[in-house]
Write a protein that binds this DNA or RNA. Structure first.
Lengths: 199, 199
DNA sequence: TGGCTTATTTTGACACTGTCAAGATTATTG
DNA sequence: CAATAATCTTGACAGTGTCAAAATAAGCCA
């Protein structure tokens, strides 16, 4: 671990990613500065620029990692046949994912990357893939139970917006009460399921 | 308007608010710096500090203004008896409110104030009042049509989360296609209305 | 009016930030 | 072993929010 200080770090790329994630958890997205990160990695201020084009690129790399985790979680939770309980459980897991690492979630969906910065092609790919994954799996969960003239894609988009909206309200500090969010999400699922025809 | 430069500006407080709103529209929330603002107002860098305790206070003032507008809009759109069309129309107006001044919306609901900074008591008051207003009016629109064991407050929270989620996806630059959002919001309203009993 | 208090505004300074350019050092390759 | 490429450092610049101390103007009370 703590080898003597050398000119070449040897493994700076992954060290940067690791320490950046730590900084993100500890100091939040605003507290994550390249200079602090460099210091933690035991390296000079501009060293990271040889591994990431700029700060935006670093943040995109972090977000990409997180999207891969989310994608994996979606695949794990939304498999098998659909039921209200399964969907309910998925929503809880999604909320947990977002609230256990709020700064990561902010990075994934926030304006820091998508608006102010520029999402990497890699990031865009994994982000869209995650949603497509969700849409497909939810579609087969609800298969045959949707009312006529109801596009499954629209249902996926709408439900995702709802859960995402709840997450944002929690993460951005507008709602503080976690149990309220829990109840609201149950209400949302209940409402959607009530609109479906019985299998 | 353009009087000769005096030591005392005379109306700096409101000038700052006005120019800050312009800067917000033009350069976005990240481009809104106190120094640029001071320059626009024709005053030195630290002059604004005698009218707003710090940058957070200025932003809270802007957000408070915006919430008052939203509150007024809610009252205007959600009066009278409820119908699917009226609610649909309200959602469209809400989307319009958010997308015509995205930076203001970001200020109102974003982490800049609610998480990183500290919302003023005044801001908290008007924000909660706006939601209470929405919840009450939506409640009377749906009166008597909600299924048993369905708390109108929860429905208000859930539906607000949905519309808010859609706005965020648009504003943060994740969704770019406006028509998609339009269709998704219609789908959301349709789903909720489908779960209600006929009047 | 004059003098005192208070409200505004300014200049100077500090610690931060991201990032560029130029040089120093090590690793790699022919 | 020499040349090239990769990696890292130091120095610098423009930008940020904000504090302290000094300058200026306005308001008020005699």
């Amino acid at each position: 671990m703590s080898r003597p200080a050398r000119y070449h770090h040897g493994d700076l790329h992954s060290t940067l990613l690791r320490e950046a994630n730590r900084l993100l958890d500890e100091d939040g997205i605003d507290g994550l500065s390249l200079r602090k990160l460099a210091e933690r990695a035991g390296v000079s201020r501009t060293a990271p620029y040889h591994h990431f084009r700029d700060k935006n690129a670093l943040l995109c790399a972090l977000a990409t990692q997180a999207f891969n985790q989310l994608d994996e979680m979606i695949g794990r939770q939304l498999q098998g046949e659909g039921s209200k309980e399964r969907i309910q459980h998925f929503v809880r897991e999604y909320l947990r994912f977002a609230t256990e690492h709020p700064e990561q979630y902010e990075l994934m969906f926030g304006r820091t990357i998508w608006k102010s910065g520029q999402p990497t092609e890699e990031l865009k790919a994994v982000a869209y893939r995650s949603f497509r994954n969700y849409a497909e799996r939810l579609g087969s969960q609800l298969q045959g139970r949707l009312p006529a003239n109801t596009d499954p894609l629209r249902v996926a988009q709408a439900s995702w917006a709802t859960v995402h909206g709840l997450c944002r309200l929690l993460i951005d500090g507008i709602y503080v009460n976690r149990e309220d969010i829990e109840a609201v999400s149950e209400q949302s699922v209940a409402l959607i399921m009530a609109a479906l025809s019985r299998p």
